[in-house]
Write a protein that binds this DNA or RNA. Sequence first.
DNA 1: TCTTCTATTCTTAGGTT
DNA 2: AAACCTAAGAATAGAAG
Lengths: 199, 199
Amino acid sequence: MNPTETRKKGKGRNKIEIKRIEKEANRQVCFSKRRQGLFKKANELCTLCGAEVAIIVFSIAGKPYSFGHPSVNHVLQRFINVPSTSEARSAAATSFEPMNEELVYLCKKLEEERNKGRALKVAQKALSPVSNSFWWDINLNLMGMEELTEYEKVLLELQAIISQLAQQSRFHAPEALMRQIDGSYMAEVGEADYLLLKQ
Amino acid sequence: MNPTETRKKGKGRNKIEIKRIEKEANRQVCFSKRRQGLFKKANELCTLCGAEVAIIVFSIAGKPYSFGHPSVNHVLQRFINVPSTSEARSAAATSFEPMNEELVYLCKKLEEERNKGRALKVAQKALSPVSNSFWWDINLNLMGMEELTEYEKVLLELQAIISQLAQQSRFHAPEALMRQIDGSYMAEVGEADYLLLKQ
DNA sequence: TCTTCTATTCTTAGGTT
DNA sequence: AAACCTAAGAATAGAAG
């Protein structure tokens, strides 16, 4: 053996510096091993400490992997609903745990609009027997200035009519509609309880 | 020393079994250490292998911690947009990486409804000068059967009127409205590029 | 409560099958 | 390419400051 390089290429682990692995084969093997290690550590954290954890990993090839306890979905939903209060901010201040307030804000917006959208959905359902395209189901980004102003005009003209109608109507609808609404709501909100796969 | 129990309570690491730590103080210390370890491993995975990773952790006390590279938001957005194709399914089949298809489905729904909601938002804005409550901005879950059937009636009556109006109106709206719409859209969709905090 | 210490266990890089 | 092997390095449980 070369005395200047005794036990290089031995069997045991070699020290590596933390920088991008250039050799693709090695990088891929390393990714696979370390991803498994990461998920195992996460699992132990959950079991030992009663923590809830979600991990999402994309390989360099773009393949997604995820770990979640009790489920990815559960943890993300919980994260989304974290109030952007001093508690969240103190977490954000800690050096290694940047609390993504932008995400929290974004997701809350989404949730709000989903709630509004629910009413819209029923409206669409109710109108669907007669017409298949609805005046409000428009991609505003595809509208030019002229279309947009027209659109506003329609809304303004509708306004008076709506306020009258809203106080007059009275009739009986089939139970089926309500079941439909409840059903679709449950399908969207209900959370599948994925079991943690033990190694 | 007791010969039957040589070197118990030494300084070095003792083997532990992976089950809930009952003593709260120990559990808390363990959580803190292992969370740091987990985030460090994640960071190494990103650097070594070019992976993108998001981790969200809730302590037993409910405090949220997160790690993301290039940002939690970026990775979640990417995860949400993963098509539920064979690729995602093959990832799901791997034993340790349950790809949460339910999540993907859910988030796509959210995104769709947000797009619908955008039209609704403009409608509300347009109508707001005259009235502060809108017929479509209703929490359906709070409605009883009677209210719900009334609501459907309103929509049905509106239907005929809408289809007429949609083909007639023509007028000019201020540019301000459009800017308002674009502005709010950007604020919701734009993605902040959080930098990974190196330890 | 938070650090630091350190013996021991755990992880994993590179090699082999 | 996937699973196994080995020993060097890394993580950490429990104690001590």
